[in-house]
């Protein structure tokens, strides 16, 4: 079964249209929708898109998102506070630190395959959190306060939009190049891929570092938005849970899935904000239904409906 996708040209213009539509939102929506709801949707879209590269296309399910987001948060916070970096360079360096961390842990992680890899990434984020709680170098369990001026709602909205657009564009390019082919080959059969001359370690490392970079950048943006960071939130497992939920509900292994998923899941959370238990229960039920009946998520369902509709049209025209 191949992932559903509209034709390339259609896909490209649809993505461009979506980007333009998203860019127009601040011109009519209020501060809350732009600076909070929309901002969160974009943040999660970028995070889920980055995770999608490794899990959806490379078949490597990493549950340690908190580690990279947390490193981006602390990196950006420290750079803007202490070193007086402007925000955008600080975000990029924060992302680079997360990618560097990915590089350092990769020799150990990539020795492991399948479930062992999954568990190791999970443990990694948890261990980092515990360490940050107990090490006073970066504020310990109190964390850090950001004293610099926070960007306006529309500023951070556009920053997040730029990151989503850049990540999605990067994925679209990667998927058409050799890195995309090698990632999918590793997902389908890592041993056979090695026998074809592919140094699988390097391919996995590239994807892993790209994911870590994007997560680090988003972490930095989030730190700037919050104004205060502490290990409990920064390295939280909740990041991973939300990212995985969004990617699966939206559609793993598709370019649109994480975008659609983030829109839907965050919107649902907003509607049910006053009923947290109901929210969790409904999200869980949707997750189960999607996994059982829609392997490519909401996006896959939309494509299937569209195909069936056009198939019906074609048939009725023939008849």
């Amino acid at each position: 079964m191949t992932p559903p996708s509209p034709s390339q040209a259609l896909g490209g213009s649809l993505l461009a249209a979506a980007a333009v539509a998203a860019a127009l939102v601040p011109s009519f929506a209020g501060d809350y929708v732009v600076g909070n709801l929309g901002f969160r949707m974009l943040e999660y879209a970028a995070l889920a898109q980055a995770w999608n590269l490794l899990a959806g296309y490379g078949g490597l399910v990493a549950l340690g998102s908190g580690a990279f987001i947390g490193i981006g948060m602390y990196g950006t916070a420290k750079l803007t506070l202490g070193a007086g970096f402007p925000l955008i360079p600080a975000l990029l360096v924060g992302g680079a630190l997360a990618a560097l961390f990915a590089l350092i842990v990769s020799p150990a992680l990539f020795r492991l395959r399948g479930l062992y890899f999954v568990i190791a990434t999970l443990v990694l984020a948890e261990a980092l959190q515990i360490w940050m709680f107990n090490w006073n170098g970066l504020g310990g369990s109190d964390g850090l306060f950001m004293t610099n001026a926070a960007p306006s709602p529309s500023e951070r909205y556009y920053l997040a939009l730029a990151i989503v657009a850049a990540t999605t564009l990067l994925l679209a390019i990667i998927l058409r190049t050799r890195l995309g082919i090698s990632l999918r080959a590793i997902r389908d059969n890592e041993d056979a891929a090695a026998q074809m001359g592919l140094w699988t370690f390097r391919t996995k490392l590239w994807a892993f570092m790209i994911m870590a970079f994007v997560m680090g950048v988003i972490g930095g943006l989030q730190a700037d938005y919050l104004g205060k960071i502490e290990p409990g939130g920064a390295f939280s497992l909740q990041w991973t849970v939300d990212i995985v939920t969004i990617a699966i509900i939206g559609g793993m292994g598709t370019l649109w899935g994480p975008l659609v998923g983030s829109l839907f899941v965050i919107w649902l959370g907003e509607r049910l904000a006053n009923h947290p238990e109901t929210h969790v229960a409904i999200t869980g039920a949707i997750l189960i239904l999607v996994i059982r009946f829609a392997p490519y998520g909401i996006w896959g369902l939309l494509i299937r409906l569209k195909d069936e509709a056009s198939g019906r049209r074609r048939r009725s025209r023939l008849a």
């Binding site: 079964m1 050799r178 090698s182 999918r184 997902r187 389908d188 074809m196």
Partner: peptide
């Protein structure tokens, strides 16, 4: 041991790109 979810063409591409070090 095919790369089951990839097209037949992409199955071969891997070898030419990495094993034979050929341009895309």
């Amino acid at each position: 041991q095919p790369f089951a979810r990839m097209s037949v063409l992409d199955n071969l591409m891997l070898g030419r790109l990495y094993g034979a070090r050929e341009g895309f």
